[in-house]
């Protein structure tokens, strides 16, 4: 279980990527998302894969962690692959069983769709792996700041996000502990039939919710006692300084997007 909690954890290796401005990283990830959506052919998939691996290596974090980050979504990826393969009818027929045919085009788009998903999840893990949640928060705050002009309270948004990031691992841990306690009382989720599994998970809702509320309540008291007032002006502990390397970092993503889009539409 703990293994699956890579989400939202910073792995400090002190690489150049770690030291980039979080705003640059967030902007990069948004651009990457655009590039990924636009990828639709083998050469461009290859370009994106190479681009991604270069950056992953630059973080000095073992590649297996990125693979692990995408792992929880494998069911979804298989699903996307199957659906795409079966619905796209173009190119040669690879396999024919009765009235049903599998096309080469279908396989291709299925594979690319699944690969895009895997790339997106594992690559965006760069952001959480190389940025402490606090910096991430502040970066997000910086990126969202323009929204304040149209009346959106971005401080609340980022506070909510940071608390969620902070407590998701704790709450998952707790759920795991309750599951163990249930197993000790003869209801081992691993051994139960599917219907019973569902029932058991449902029963966890009570203790997990009770505990999440208790935690939230205590956290609010603690924040209040340290003088926190929603929306009140605050100074910032981390100083974000945009440097030339951050510009280059973002430009490399702009280039990726440009290449992918040009190939697609020309």
């Amino acid at each position: 279980m703990r293994d699956k909690l890579l989400f939202g954890r910073c792995i400090d290796t002190g690489s150049p990527i770690h030291r980039l401005d979080p705003r640059a990283k967030i902007t990069g990830m948004i651009l990457y998302l655009i590039a990924i959506i636009a990828v639709g052919s083998w050469p461009m998939l290859l370009v994106t894969v190479v681009f991604s691996i270069v950056y992953m290596l630059a973080t000095r974090i073992p590649l297996k962690y990125f693979v692990k980050a995408a792992k929880p979504l494998w069911v979804l990826m298989v699903f996307i692959f199957v659906v795409q393969s079966l619905t796209v009818e173009s190119g040669e027929v690879v396999l024919q069983i009765g009235g049903w045919a599998l096309y080469a085009g279908g396989l291709k788009s299925g594979f690319i769709a699944a690969a895009r998903m895997a790339l997106l999840v594992s690559f965006t893990a760069i952001l959480t792996f190389t940025t402490t949640p606090g910096l991430l928060n502040q970066g997000l705050d910086g990126v969202l700041k323009p929204l304040q002009k149209i009346g959106i309270k971005t401080q609340r948004l980022t506070l909510m996000m940071s608390i969620a990031l902070r407590f998701i691992p704790t709450i998952l841990d707790e759920t795991h502990k309750i599951l163990k306690a249930q197993a000790a009382r003869g209801a081992d989720i691993k051994e139960l039939p599917w219907k019973e599994k569902g029932k058991l998970l449902l029963s966890l809702l009570v203790p997990v919710t009770v505990s999440a509320f208790r935690r939230a309540e205590e956290l609010v008291l603690s924040m209040e006692s340290r003088g926190y007032i929603v929306g009140a002006p605050r100074s910032e502990y981390h100083l974000l300084t945009w440097q030339t390397k951050d510009t280059w970092f973002v430009l490399s993503y702009v280039l990726l997007v440009a290449v992918v889009l040009t190939y697609r539409f020309i």
């Binding site: 306690a181 000790a184 051994e191 966890l204 505990s211």
Partner: peptide
């Protein structure tokens, strides 16, 4: 099979009251 073992060894985790659910 661990069922019989688990019946015969009762394990009480930390803060067990937080694991009540009925």
């Amino acid at each position: 099979p661990l069922r019989e073992l688990r019946r015969r060894v009762g394990l009480v985790f930390q803060f067990p009251e937080q694991q009540l659910f009925e």
